[in-house]
Design a protein around this nucleic acid. Sequence first.
DNA 1: AAACGGTTATCAATTAATGATAATCCTGAG
DNA 2: CTCAGGATTATCATTAATTGATAACCGTTT
Lengths: 236, 236
Amino acid sequence: MGPSDRMLALLCCLANQGRPMTVKSLAELTSQPVSTAYRHLRQLLAWGMVSEREGGTYAPGPQAVRLQQGFEQRNDLLQWARPVLTELTDITQESSALLMAVRDHALCVEMIDSPQPLRCCYHRGQVQPLLKGASARALLAFMSEEEREMALTLRTEAERDEAQAGLESIRAEGVAISLGEIDQGVWGASAPVFNGRGRLKAVISVMAPEARTRQRTAWLAEQTRQSAQRLGELLE
Amino acid sequence: MGPSDRMLALLCCLANQGRPMTVKSLAELTSQPVSTAYRHLRQLLAWGMVSEREGGTYAPGPQAVRLQQGFEQRNDLLQWARPVLTELTDITQESSALLMAVRDHALCVEMIDSPQPLRCCYHRGQVQPLLKGASARALLAFMSEEEREMALTLRTEAERDEAQAGLESIRAEGVAISLGEIDQGVWGASAPVFNGRGRLKAVISVMAPEARTRQRTAWLAEQTRQSAQRLGELLE
DNA sequence: AAACGGTTATCAATTAATGATAATCCTGAG
DNA sequence: CTCAGGATTATCATTAATTGATAACCGTTT
């Protein structure tokens, strides 16, 4: 692992914490000497990638705003995802979201909330380990072999086995379904979005309280699958 | 300039272009060999900081969403800025924005649009070189000596002189005012936001069509100054 | 006042980046 | 269908950069 990797590890670790961090804690989390972490943070500071907060703590910096803007602009996947998700939530009356694999996490990049009083909520920027839950399992099932290796390298043996079990049936069905794997009483379905070259770009997921899904799990799963497929057909 | 700097240069350059870029063009823009740029882009790709687009082009990646979320969460400056800007636009009926200095650019991180049919519009993530315009000149006037050096190192001699002229009077007034410096017929005022330790964190700017400002330039400037000061007093 | 936990600065040893070169892959033209 | 041009990838000896132990330095707390 080179210096650039150490720096990116710092940056991503910082983003995942969700609160300002001290140099020491970041150094520990990324397994590097304090002096090295410090030097890299000062460098990131100069580029506006991180900003200083009170008491020698650091948080992501203003350059993140520019970067996110660049990510969203001219991004076919995101542009088309919004209407597709809106329609899916319209039909199902449940929350829907678009999630992408980023290293060993599933990241929510777009979502639409259910209009119902009792609803499951995604948040833009929210991450989940690529282990449990419909979204994570759909991403794992349809990503390439190497990507899956990458995503699971840091996990324990037990976690790896659990995460890889039953991926074949997900591939066969074209949908992953979960019940209470992450949050109690939450049902979820997730289907892959492929681009024109058959490459996995994201998954579309629907999340609902279990009570509302009992009579229509198959229908919800099918709606999710169809939305994901339609989105894929809109991409090059 | 080390490898990490080269990589960050690539990333920031990519963000500033606003469209997917080829390896070659990025290498040229950041003055590095194609092979080096390529290696760094692959590394950034593995961390989700950039994503591949059609035809060997690259754009900012999904990790940017996570990073931006981290920037906005638990950020006193941003949390307080929203109500202050809303109030300022309410009183003045003109667009207002919060801008921060990022290296040699002014970056809009929050804005409120004027309610009027004819309005000047900021965009979140928008950048302007730290040279012209009320925002840029206010940032230059109130930043530290070293920060100003940094911001102007890449500029030509003429640009440097122009950017530094008249900063004393801005410091004396506590407000920078511009007229048509960037866009024809646009009037702007910008005032510094200092935190408790007297450190410049951002500027608040008001932008309006010249025609609406003639009778009240002093009043608009004063409102801007007061809003910026109030915001500063809310920070540690 | 002094001890503590943390952040900054320094510098010789050494590891990792570099970039010229070549292979490869597209794409469009003859 | 093949070839040429322009781009992206992969390779590897050279060299310049990171590294991290150490120590100084703050700001709090005891």
